[in-house]
């Protein structure tokens, strides 16, 4: 069984309302870096909450490390394994002082004091906020607050972190900080990272992208595969990264260029090669 597994999951906030999640089967392996994209209201945030066990599916089941999220006895263990960072940094900080906020989760786990201290220091170091340990949380910038929120989850030592549009309310600098933190958690610490976003440049960083529309998964693959299908993404009102769109338009105009280019430097290389080839042919 995979680390996270969803089997025929459906979900509606109340029986009278339309289903927000409409039959999802999904497997996420341990240590993977997955990005879930989709336009507003496609159910991606709801899916994130289902994966962490904050919401329970109306139909079907979700397993985290083999434990059913509907199993109340396991709720605690599931939350310990799978942390979640939310959109608004202000609404997830519990304490007024940075280190006390980070200590919140280990305090809840009932760990001894020395262990809490160790975890708080380690989490602060991971998000590079050690010098802010004693600061008041409300005086930090958005990006810093969000890093504290990540540290607060890290102190729980989870195996997986779900970022629910964690960069949506940040400025470009803050966004960069968080994306680089996500990458570090995944590549260096081997953590499973699931990020929900509508910034395509962020989704590109993942190893796997899942595209959602109307509560269903419509595409699932590597960034190259997903962004090769520009028309399909546009049909569900999603944009592709600018570089990818440029290459797509060039190709449409009859230039023989490969699809699924995601980074500006790659595009430059490809165009350079193409130009060389052209001049050799002439």
């Amino acid at each position: 069984m995979s680390f996270i597994e969803a089997q025929g999951v459906e979900f509606a906030y109340s029986p009278e309302e339309d289903k927000v999640i409409n039959g999802i089967d999904l497997k996420i392996e341990k240590g993977s870096y997955v990005s879930i994209i989709g336009h507003n209201g496609c159910g991606k945030s709801t899916l994130a909450k289902l994966l962490c066990g904050i919401l329970l599916p109306s139909k079907g089941a979700i397993f985290v490390d083999g434990m059913n999220t509907a199993d109340e006895d396991k709720a605690f263990d599931i939350r310990k394994k799978c942390g979640m960072v939310f959109q608004n940094p202000d609404n997830q900080l519990v304490a007024s002082v940075v280190e006390e906020d980070i200590a919140f989760a280990p305090e809840n786990l009932g760990l001894p004091r020395e262990e809490i201290r160790k975890r708080v220091d380690a989490a602060l170091a991971t998000v590079d906020m050690t010098e802010h340990a004693k600061h008041a949380t409300y005086k930090l910038s958005g990006g810093q607050k969000q890093r504290i929120a990540i540290a607060g989850i890290l102190a729980m030592q989870p195996e997986c972190i779900v970022f629910d549009e964690a960069t949506a309310m940040l400025d470009p600098t803050g966004r960069k900080e968080i994306v680089s933190a996500m990458k570090r958690l995944n590549k260096e610490m081997g953590m499973t990272v699931i990020t929900i976003t509508h910034y395509m440049n962020e989704a590109v960083e993942a190893d796997r992208i899942i595209v959602m529309d109307h509560g269903k998964i419509i595409s699932d693959g590597t960034p190259q595969e997903i962004f090769s299908e520009v028309e399909k993404l546009q049909s569900v009102s999603l944009a592709v990264p600018q570089v990818t769109e440029l290459m797509y338009l060039l190709e449409k105009d009859g230039f023989d260029l490969p699809r699924g280019i995601l980074h500006a430097m790659d595009a430059a290389d490809v165009i350079e090669k193409f130009m060389r080839r052209q001049s050799e042919n002439d």
Binding site: I54, K80, G83, F86, V94, A103, F104, G110, R113, I116
Partner: peptide, 18 residues
């Protein structure tokens, strides 16, 4: 939601940093 995600379950069995 955020507190629940961080395993908050009331004061029982809670320890303190300070």
């Amino acid at each position: 939601d955020a507190m629940e995600c961080r395993c908050y379950h009331g004061g029982e069995g809670r320890t303190k940093l300070k």
